[in-house]
Design a protein around this nucleic acid. Structure first.
Lengths: 186, 186
DNA sequence: GTCTATAGTTGGATAGAC
DNA sequence: GTCTATCCAACTATAGAC
């Protein structure tokens, strides 16, 4: 897949945006086409059906996640710091892709649910590897899930359900550090 | 509102069920009516519009949450234990109401978003009151959010994204106990 | 590749019989 | 209170011109 980053990509981005802003019901082919600047017929040339459009979205997420996991492994401050700091919605391509796919999962799309579960599994594996203790890794992963849930799922219409300011995240990381004492021996 | 717990209630439950199982798009008036065992016309006698139906759902959630917060305050093992243990989807009326309302929130319904944020605020207040340290309370609340996100949002089509077995929850509570040392003095 | 036109369905909501 | 019949708008998808 060399450089077809034109109409096809614009359509995918438009679909993501609409899923995020208006939910599955608002993300109609008409709306997506209008937002991408093509006609409905033009859209359906690239994606033969709405289902194909959703499949394209999930693929995109998988690609972006692959890149993210590599960055997480190489993060200077460690995977936990990276995970927590990137668990708030910063508007990155990955964030948008993740939220859009969550909307699909909640619309009963099995591909989306499976992809999300697989991605979570990858992240958890990296954290567990880095932390050692699986129980602690699970707790940290859940905090990350919670941040995402608040920032991306609830925080659309409401002002700051959980506090996700930079200082709040610093404080959170300090608190979480207590979970992993330098040396522990039951 | 004395005892009108008949058709009106059945309709509300049917709407919840369909939102959970099929998402907002699947929860059509036709589908809700069929599931509740009435005709579309019959449904619309009780709720004049789809919007009114959604409003009824949010009201129901607010009522159920009121009861839950009181139980949380009176929980024998304390609010934190109560919160974490009830953050996995047990199929209770409150769980179902919460998940259904989340679907609405993601379909861009401001009432639903506001109600969910308010509820989270109530829970956080009780935990903060009980724990003392606001930063620790926030971390615990985020773990609860994470559990809910996995159990209710992702765990519909996929087997157990996060482990929510009884033993896993016990282990999680043990880990979280490290966040609140008996005496702390920064 | 992209468009317009249109077919076929299903959505929410109203009217009026029972 | 509950039903059937019906209206109109919106949705997905196809056909065929350019």
């Amino acid at each position: 897949m060399p450089d077809t980053a034109s109409t096809r990509d614009r359509i995918l981005v438009a679909y993501e945006d609409l899923l995020i802003e208006a939910g599955e019901r608002g993300a109609t082919l008409d709306a997506v086409a209008a937002r991408a600047g093509v006609s409905k017929g033009g859209l359906l040339y690239h994606f033969g059906s709405k289902d194909a459009l959703s499949a394209g979205l999930v693929e995109r997420l998988q690609h972006l996640t692959g890149l993210d996991v590599r960055k997480m492994r190489a993060a200077p401050a460690g995977p936990v710091d990276y995970l927590i700091r990137t668990s708030i919605d910063s508007g990155s391509a990955l964030d948008r892709s993740l939220v859009a796919t969550s909307r699909l999962a909640q619309a009963d799309d099995p591909r989306a649910s499976e992809a999300l579960a697989a991605i979570r599994g990858e992240w958890l594996a990296v954290i567990t590897e880095s932390i050692g203790d699986p129980a602690v890794a699970r707790a940290i992963m859940l905090v990350s899930d919670g941040l995402y849930f608040n920032s991306a799922m609830l925080g659309m219409g409401t002002p700051d359900p959980a506090d996700v300011s930079a200082e709040a995240i610093d404080g959170l990381l300090t608190v979480l550090a207590r979970l992993t004492p330098p040396s522990a021996h039951d």
